[in-house]
Write a protein that binds this DNA or RNA. Structure first.
Length: 788
DNA sequence: ATCCTCCCCTAC
DNA sequence: TAAGGTAGGGGAGGAT
C-alpha cells in the first residue's frame, strides 16, 4: 500500500451516509471477515505454531480441557487441508490429522481484536452492519468514489476499491497480526460471495463482467439464506441445485417451487442482483428464553415452577434492554410418542413434536409489560391449555414479541412524563445478584497437570455432563446485536445532540433520520477519536460485549441457566462423604487416601466397598422385570436434571454386549471410542433391567484394560478407556443415580425396600472394571486415572 | 387485499 | 443430521 492519499480523508461529505438513491449499481459493499478468527488470534502468542494444523475446541468438561468429543470451533487452513472442518469432533480431527494441535480459547484477545476490527471498519465505513464478532458488512461507496476520482485524475488504472480494502486489511493486520479477508462488490450478496475467493488473507473485487462466470458453478446452498431445506426443495422441484442450471428457470417456476419471496430472491441472486440495504440499526423484535435440554418433570408443580423461573429470566432480558412486550408465545417440545422415553443423548430431548401457542401479554392497565409474574402466569396458562402430561415435556420456550420501549410503556397514554431512569432492573438484577457458583470447579491443575513428568498426561478428558459449553454459541451469536447497538449509539452520539444517546429506545423512526443530519461530516473528521477520550457511555457498551465474550468457566457456566435449574436442586451436597473413620476401616478403605479423593470417587469407592462388604457378592437380578424405581437420587454435581429419568426400556432385550458390535463377525474391534461408547450405551440401554451379565462385564473390562495397557507414545488408548468409562458412568447415573452412593446416615437409604439392587449391581460392575483399569494404570503410570 | 398465526428455515 | 440457544424472515392458510 504505497503512498497514496488514502489515509487522508477529506472531511467532505456531500453524500448522505445512507439512503443511496435506489437506482444504484454504484454502491461499493465490502464483506470483511477474519480468517479463522479464534485460531489466528490464538496464534499470536504462539508464533511457532504458524503454518501448522491448529484448532480451537469447545471443551465439554469443567476443566476447560478439550476432550475427544470436543467440538472444533475454529481450524487453521493447514488443518483444513486435512479435511478438518469446524464443528467436527476433536476425535474425528485427530483421525484425519493425528498431529493436529489444539489451543485454548483466549477470550480477552478475541474481544480486543474484535474491537480493533470494528474500530477500523467504523473509521472507514459510510455504513456498517455487523454480522458477528469477526464479520461485518460495510458500505464504502463514498470513499471509494472519492478515491476513484483522485485516481482518475492521476491517470491510475488501479482498482481503488481493492486498494482501499487492502488498506483496511493492512490496518487490521498491523494491529492484530491477523488476516482478514474482504470481498467487494456492488451488493451484499456478491460481496459475500466474493469473500470466498478473497480467502484466505486477501481481497477480491467481484465486478459485473465476471459475475455470470463466477456464479455459474456455485450451488444454491452457497447463497446466504439458502440452506439445507431449500436445497432439497430445489432438487426435488427444480431438478437441480446448480446456479447456472437454475438460471434457466423462469421466475414463475422458482416462485412456485420456493415461495414468493424466496423464489424472487433466488431469481435475482442468480443474476447477481440483490438490493438489500445494510442494516445498521434494527429494533429488537423479540426476546426469548428456551430450554430444550434436561427437561424431565415429574408433575405439574415442577413444570410450573420451571416456567416461572423462565419467566423471570425473560423479564431480566427484557429489562436489560428496557423493553416491554404485548405478546407471548410458548413453545413446547413434547416427546414423540413413538420415541423412547429416554433418548440416546443423555437428557436430550430426543424426537419431539413441537407446539406453539401465542397469546396477548397484558400488563397492568392493559399495557405492554415485562413483569415476570404476568409472563409466568400467561406462560403457565398456555402450557396448561395443552393438557400435556408433564412427564412428556422435553423442551420449553417463552418468547415475548410486540416489543416497545419500556419508558414509552410506562408513560401514561397521554404522555405523562416519566423519569428517564435507566431502569433499576437493568442495573441491578442481571449483574450483581448472580447466585453463587453452582458449578463445581475442578482443581485448576487437573487438566494442566502437565507440570511434572507425570506420565498420566492424557489430559483427563473431562466429560462430566453435557454441560453448556463454555463458549456457549449463543453468547457469540448474541454479539452482533450488541455490537450493533454499540455502533448505533455511537453513531447517534456523534451525529446528534447529546440528547439522543440518553434516549433509550430506538424509536420507530430511529436512525439518522431522527437526529440532526450532518452525520458523515462529523464522522469523517473524527477518525482519530473513534474512541474518544471520554468514552463514558460507549465504553459501557463495549464492556458489555467484553462481558459476553468472557469465558464463563469461572463462577458459572451460565449463571442464568444454572439459576434456572436451582429450584429443582437438591439441598447442597456435603463437600465430602460423611463417614466415620472406623467405618472406613471397617470397609477396608484407607482414610487418608479416601479423603484425598474427589468426592465422586469417594462415593464410588464407598458404595463399592459397602456392597462387597454387605453382600459379599454382586446381586443377581430378580428374573422379574419389575422396575425398582429409585425413590431418591443423587444429582450429578455439575448439572441437575429435574427428575432422574425412570428406566423404562421398551425393547425386548437381547442382552448381549457383543452383539451390539457393528461388525458382528469381527468380534470386538473398535476403531473409535465412539463405537465403543455406542456399544456400551446400547448395552446399558437394553440390559438395564437386569444386572449386567458377568460375561459382558468381563468383556468390557478386557477392552478397557487393553486400552489402558496399550497406551504408549500416544495416549490414545488411555483416553479411550477413560472416555468409555466416563460414558458408562454417565449412563449408569442416568438410570441408577440413587444407587451410585448410599448415604449410610440416612436410614431411608439403607432401607432395603428402597434400594435398587439392579442399579447397585451395575455400579458394582462399574467399580470392578474401574478398579481393574486403575490397577493397570498404577502399574504403568504410578497413578490412578481420574474420570472427572 | 392484507394481516395474523403457526409454523419452518436459516444463520450465528 | 450430536445437542442446544437466540433471533429474524418467510410460507401457508385462515382471519379480518
Amino acid at each position: 500500500m504505497r503512498g497514496n492519499a488514502l489515509v487522508m480523508r477529506l472531511p467532505t461529505s456531500k453524500w448522505k451516509g445512507k439512503g443511496k438513491a435506489a437506482g444504484d449499481e454504484e454502491r461499493v459493499i465490502m464483506h470483511c471477515d477474519f480468517d479463522c478468527f479464534f485460531v489466528s488470534a490464538g496464534l499470536v502468542s504462539r508464533p511457532e505454531l504458524k503454518g501448522k494444523p491448529v484448532i480451537v475446541c469447545h471443551s465439554q468438561g469443567s476443566t476447560g480441557g478439550a476432550s475427544s468429543t470436543s467440538e472444533i470451533a475454529s481450524s487453521s487452513y493447514e488443518a483444513r487441508k486435512f479435511g478438518i472442518k469446524n464443528g467436527m469432533s476433536l476425535q474425528q480431527a485427530r483421525q484425519l490429522c493425528p498431529q493436529v494441535i489444539t489451543i485454548p480459547y483466549e477470550f480477552e484477545r478475541y474481544k480486543e481484536f474484535s474491537l480493533v476490527f470494528y474500530t477500523v471498519l467504523m473509521k472507514h465505513a459510510d455504513d456498517l452492519q455487523s454480522v458477528s464478532v469477526d464479520e461485518a458488512l460495510i458500505d464504502v461507496t463514498n470513499t471509494v468514489n472519492e478515491l476513484r476520482s483522485q485516481a482518475q485524475s492521476r491517470g491510475s488504472t488501479q482498482d481503488p476499491a481493492k486498494d482501499f480494502a487492502e488498506m483496511i486489511r493492512a490496518e487490521v493486520r498491523k494491529a492484530t497480526t491477523c488476516e482478514i479477508s474482504i470481498g467487494i462488490s456492488h451488493n451484499i450478496l456478491l460481496a459475500r460471495l466474493a469473500t470466498r475467493r478473497a480467502k484466505p488473507g486477501g481481497s477480491y473485487h467481484l465486478t459485473p463482467p465476471e459475475i455470470p462466470a463466477f456464479l455459474a458453478p456455485l450451488d444454491i446452498s452457497d447463497l446466504h439464506g439458502f440452506g439445507w431445506s431449500t436445497k432439497q426443495k430445489a432438487q426435488e422441484k427444480l431438478g437441480t441445485t446448480n446456479l447456472s442450471e437454475l438460471t434457466k428457470k423462469s421466475k414463475g417456476v422458482l416462485i412456485e417451487a420456493l415461495g414468493k419471496a424466496t423464489g424472487e430472491t433466488l431469481y435475482n441472486a442468480l443474476r447477481g442482483v440483490d438490493d438489500k440495504k445494510l442494516e445498521s440499526d434494527k429494533p429488537r423484535k423479540s426476546v426469548s428464553c428456551e430450554i430444550n435440554y434436561g427437561i424431565r418433570f415429574e408433575n405439574n408443580e415442577q413444570a410450573e415452577a420451571f416456567i416461572r423461573q423462565m419467566a423471570t429470566e425473560v423479564k431480566k432480558r427484557l429489562d436489560a434492554i428496557d423493553m416491554v412486550g404485548r405478546s407471548i408465545t410458548l413453545k413446547i417440545m413434547k416427546r414423540d410418542p413413538t420415541a423412547p422415553v429416554e433418548p440416546p443423548k443423555f437428557l436430550g430431548h430426543g424426537a419431539c413434536d413441537l407446539f406453539n401457542k401465542q397469546s396477548p401479554l397484558i400488563g397492568p392497565g392493559g399495557r405492554a409489560t415485562s413483569d415476570d409474574e404476568v409472563i409466568g402466569d400467561q406462560a403457565w396458562r398456555l402450557l396448561k391449555s395443552f393438557k400435556f402430561d408433564p412427564k412428556e415435556l422435553r423442551g420449553i420456550g417463552i418468547q415475548v414479541q410486540k416489543l416497545e420501549s419500556s419508558s414509552a410503556a410506562t408513560t401514561a397514554p397521554a404522555g405523562q412524563a416519566v423519569l428517564a431512569f435507566r431502569t433499576k432492573a437493568s442495573v441491578g438484577s442481571s449483574k450483581d445478584v448472580m447466585p453463587p457458583p453452582e458449578i463445581r470447579i475442578q482443581p485448576p491443575s487437573n487438566n494442566a497437570a502437565v507440570t511434572s513428568g507425570d506420565p498420566v498426561k492424557p489430559s483427563n478428558p473431562t466429560f462430566d455432563l453435557p454441560s453448556f459449553s463454555q463458549v456457549d454459541k449463543s453468547v457469540l451469536a448474541a454479539l452482533p446485536r450488541d455490537i450493533r447497538e454499540e455502533l448505533e449509539s455511537e453513531y447517534k452520539r456523534r451525529s446528534a445532540s447529546p440528547f439522543t444517546s440518553a434516549a433509550p429506545g430506538p424509536g420507530p423512526g430511529r436512525g439518522p433520520s431522527m437526529g440532526p443530519p450532518p452525520v458523515p461530516a462529523n464522522r469523517r473528521s473524527t477518525t482519530s477519536n473513534i474512541f474518544p477520550a471520554k468514552p463514558a457511555g460507549r465504553m459501557s457498551n463495549i464492556q458489555r460485549i467484553a462481558q459476553q465474550l468472557r469465558p464463563r468457566s469461572r463462577s458459572s457456566l451460565s449463571p442464568n441457566k444454572s439459576s434456572l435449574y436451582a429450584w429443582a436442586r437438591k439441598p447442597e451436597k456435603p463437600k465430602h462423604v460423611k463417614i466415620s473413620l472406623s467405618k472406613l476401616r471397617e470397609l477396608k478403605l484407607d482414610p487418608e487416601v479416601f479423603f484425598a479423593l474427589p468426592i465422586k470417587v469417594q462415593r464410588e469407592q464407598l458404595t463399592r466397598a459397602r456392597i462387597l462388604q454387605e453382600k459379599g457378592y454382586i446381586p443377581e437380578p430378580p428374573k422379574e422385570r419389575k422396575i425398582l424405581k429409585p425413590k431418591k437420587f443423587v444429582l450429578p454435581p455439575d448439572f441437575v436434571p429435574y427428575i432422574a429419568p425412570k428406566p423404562k426400556a421398551r425393547h425386548p432385550p437381547p442382552p448381549f454386549l457383543r452383539q451390539q458390535g457393528k461388525t458382528k463377525g469381527e468380534k470386538l474391534y473398535f476403531t473409535e471410542t465412539d463405537d465403543v461408547q455406542r456399544v456400551v450405551e446400547s448395552w446399558v440401554d437394553v440390559c438395564h433391567r437386569w444386572a449386567p451379565r458377568d460375561k459382558d462385564v468381563e468383556f468390557l473390562q478386557k477392552y478397557i484394560v487393553q486400552c489402558a495397557d496399550r497406551a504408549r507414545a500416544t495416549d490414545v488408548g488411555v483416553e479411550r478407556a477413560i472416555a468409555v468409562m466416563q460414558w458408562w458412568r454417565i449412563l449408569l447415573r442416568r438410570l441408577f443415580a440413587a444407587s451410585e452412593v448410599l448415604d449410610e446416615d440416612d436410614p431411608e437409604d439403607m432401607a432395603l425396600s428402597q434400594r435398587n439392587l439392579i442399579g447397585e449391581a451395575w455400579w458394582a460392575a462399574f467399580y470392578q472394571v474401574k478398579e481393574e483399569m486403575d490397577a493397570i494404570s498404577r502399574k504403568r503410570f504410578g497413578g490412578v486415572l481420574s474420570l472427572n
